[in-house]
Design a protein around this nucleic acid. Structure first.
Lengths: 229, 229
DNA sequence: ACAAAAGTGTTTGTTGTACACCCATGC
DNA sequence: GCATGGGTGTACAACAAACACTTTTGT
């Protein structure tokens, strides 16, 4: 069995940088490789493309198989095609990045006989292939993206406090923001809705809970609104 | 002769949306297909990836072979991988967009036995494959990009007037800008240099010529400067 | 002298930034 | 009552937007 083509073809893979946020850090989901090359090393989840399947589907399929994650926010990042990036042969990878809400997708260690674990962004082990480069690219993209698109909400629970929202920005952008100015700005946008609920289980005054209102956001975008932090 | 693989592989191509600017319009470079499928139809220049070559190289090679263009500004756009986008088989294309200065790359009709021609953006014929979608994506990217990165200069001659610069923005963003505010803003950035030359061959007062100063721009970026129009 | 585009400042409104204290709650 | 974070307003600076006339040059 096999497939023959008139001209040689690079292999095609999809890889995925999955970001999650917990109380401490921005984290990335890595899997430990079970096979050569780079056996035992940590790497981004991903795998070979199948004919008849879009690469986004490949990415989602591999994510599910290797880490158990599904229904995540996923967006194409960049295609890496340097011939030497894989020692075996020329493998082109279409990289994606994903954002998940860690509190609802707890540390999903080991599925599919592989080891999966979340690593803090400032404590990433050496990675297989050119995955450090891909991860760096993904992080840069994330940093840029959250300032101009309301994607950061994907990293938070459905209901969140303004502190959580602010800290999410602070952790990703890696700088402090002014509390009053932040609240003023984000509330004035009119795209997050105040709920009739407050935080629970905190040992201090409980904060108001809010929710991202996608409908209002879409409306405002149509009217020319531009999200910008 | 041929190449055999254990698993089926999608084919891989690179396609390129090349933008140029002349006195009237924003234009795109298309080639007329000489082969099936879509024989005789207009399409974006591009072609099959070769093993051992990055896809950016593929894009540049095809651009040279099909249109004669070289040394252009070229950036990866997006990878299109819908299985049905090519009627023959599953072909994944890594799309690029390029910016060229039309006054120095005159209408390069027909190279490599193919027909190449510039089309105004508001007069694009029906295109082969999903190339309309790719082109639309490229145009959206260009519109976004020129506001935050100084890439628009790639569309202008090395030496340009402020009017040319402003009209470039007006044509691409598709809205009028205020002359005084535009000049104030762009000159205050301190990244374009006033030359000791003025326009020639105009039937009215000749305008000052300027040049983009990449060195100053890079310096300023290091100091935290953000280009924004 | 006329046509065409070059070049130039000021005012006003909006937005960003810096900054500090009292309040509510749980322990 | 103390520790922790919640919640709030104002003043100043910087930037964006609106706007019109004079100058230069070529024909």
């Amino acid at each position: 069995m096999g497939f023959a083509y008139k001209y040689a073809r690079p292999a095609l893979t999809a890889d995925c940088a999955v970001f999650g946020l917990d109380d401490e850090d921005l984290k990335v989901l890595l899997i430990q490789r079970g096979l050569e090359p780079f056996e035992g090393m940590w790497a981004l989840p991903g795998g070979f493309a199948t004919v008849g399947e879009s690469l986004e589907s490949t990415a989602r399929r591999e994510l599910l198989e290797e880490t158990g994650l599904k229904n995540v926010f996923l967006e194409q990042l960049y295609t890496f095609s340097e011939p030497k990036r894989d020692p075996r042969e020329h493998v082109v990878t279409v990289a994606y990045y994903a954002l998940v809400n860690l509190s609802e997708h707890k540390v999903q260690a080991s599925t599919d006989a592989r080891n999966a674990a979340w690593f803090a962004m400032d404590d990433i082990p050496k990675l297989a292939f050119d995955h450090e480069k891909i991860l760096k690219t993904a992080y840069e993209r994330l940093k840029g993206k959250i300032r101009y698109q309301p994607v950061g909400f994907e990293l938070l629970p459905d209901k969140f406090t303004l502190r959580q929202l602010q800290q999410m920005y602070e952790k990703i952008l890696d700088r402090k923001l002014d509390k009053r100015n932040f609240r003023k700005k984000i509330l004035n946008m009119g795209i997050i809705e105040e709920l009739d609920e407050i935080e629970t289980d905190v040992s201090h005054r409980a904060a108001q809970l809010y929710q991202f209102d996608k409908r209002k956001y879409d409306e405002k975008v149509k009217e020319g609104f531009n999200f910008e932090l």
